[in-house]
Write a protein that binds this DNA or RNA. Structure first.
Lengths: 199, 199
DNA sequence: GGCGTTCTAACGAGCGTTCGAACGAATTTC
DNA sequence: GAAATTCGTTCGAACGCTCGTTAGAACGCC
């Protein structure tokens, strides 16, 4: 029954946008039902509860984020290019799906039970993947900055994007990604070998 | 009546920590009352409403943040030192008052009416002050990165700190601030004049 | 006795959730 | 071929509960 799954995704879209706009605690099932063009009881045919709706929204978002990452990284080989690809993908996701990412940033802490454990595990893996890239980049250089802080700084600058980015087309987003990865790569340390020979 | 103001601050402390832990939407006045060791009605003697409590918490936090900034910047003259002082102050505030900063990051959007306008104005000024520092730093260098993105990246890496920082003493925080400002200054561009003379 | 402070108890509203009926399009029955 | 039946889907209406907020009385210190 493809019709059911299509309407489930539409219900999750509605929940996602309402959570993103009002935050989980202030959002009501009546808000979500209105956004989904359903009655409240009609909405419950697709979403078992408000709490599970949050879990499904978060799970769906992180799933898309993680799958996209593997696709993006498979196209680049050297550490610098891999890191640039990672930033491009991450910033791209944030700008293409701002509502989904707002929920992940803002409301993930409101998860409980199994959903909380599962989603946190996906996130942990995603972060670990990024940390590995930072380590690979640092190993090519004489980096004085701790990996822990460098990774955190990288995520910080990317995840702050929703607060100010108002770009429209995809080239705006990849421009942001390009400048951010440049700032990061240059900031983490000068390359071990300079382009011009020293002696 | 110094006793009143002391207990008002205690009530705001309670509200701040509950907001930080549960987020504004999920926090209840009963939670805050319990944290303040007051009955619900007793709490209302100090806080006119939940909404105004959020406004007062945010206002108090931004006030402290802004006042501390002026103090921190008055001690450093050259642009680089000023930016380093700014980062040290900002990261210091986040690590010393994590609850306050969590509320600012997370729940400020839930503000309404006059409180919203007033707090947003303080934030705008604070951000503008930081942007000026970034401009001053960039003018000393050949920076290829847009000021807008650079400023956003700087705020992003600093504001992400609460997500991972678990340091205890003040030296941990200033170490983080040092590495972050180094990453940023080095990343924004190479200095125009090298420390060693060129010709 | 007065006043600043705190309490117990309750109000009305809105919340998440559920019940039982009604819809409509297949599918079956005669 | 029309009537009856099934089943996935949607609905209006309501349940019980918790929320923010308030009234009014009691406390303790000057």
């Amino acid at each position: 029954m493809p019709g059911y799954d299509l309407r489930l995704q539409a219900a999750l879209d509605a929940a996602e946008s309402v959570f993103a706009e009002k935050s989980y605690g202030l959002a009501t099932m009546r808000d979500i039902a209105a956004a989904a063009n359903l009655s409240v009881a009609g909405l419950y045919y697709y979403l078992p509860s408000k709490q599970r709706a949050l879990g499904m929204v978060c799970g769906r978002a992180f799933q898309a984020l993680s799958e996209g990452l593997e696709r993006a990284l498979s196209e680049a080989a050297p550490p610098d290019s891999q890191l640039r690809a990672f930033v491009r993908h991450h910033v791209g996701f944030i700008t293409v799906s701002p509502a989904a990412y707002r929920v992940l940033l803002h409301d993930m802490e409101a998860l409980e039970g199994e959903d909380r454990v599962a989603v946190h595990e996906i996130r942990r893996r995603y972060f670990a993947r990024a940390a590995d890239l930072v380590i690979a980049v640092q190993q090519q250089r004489t980096s004085s900055i701790s990996t822990r802080i460098a990774t955190a700084a990288l995520f910080g600058m990317m995840n702050w994007t929703p607060m100010w980015y108002r770009g429209e087309n995809e080239s705006d987003a990849s421009h942001v990604a390009l400048e951010m990865s440049t700032l990061f790569l240059r900031g983490v340390a000068a390359p071990a070998e300079e382009p011009a020979a020293i002696a």
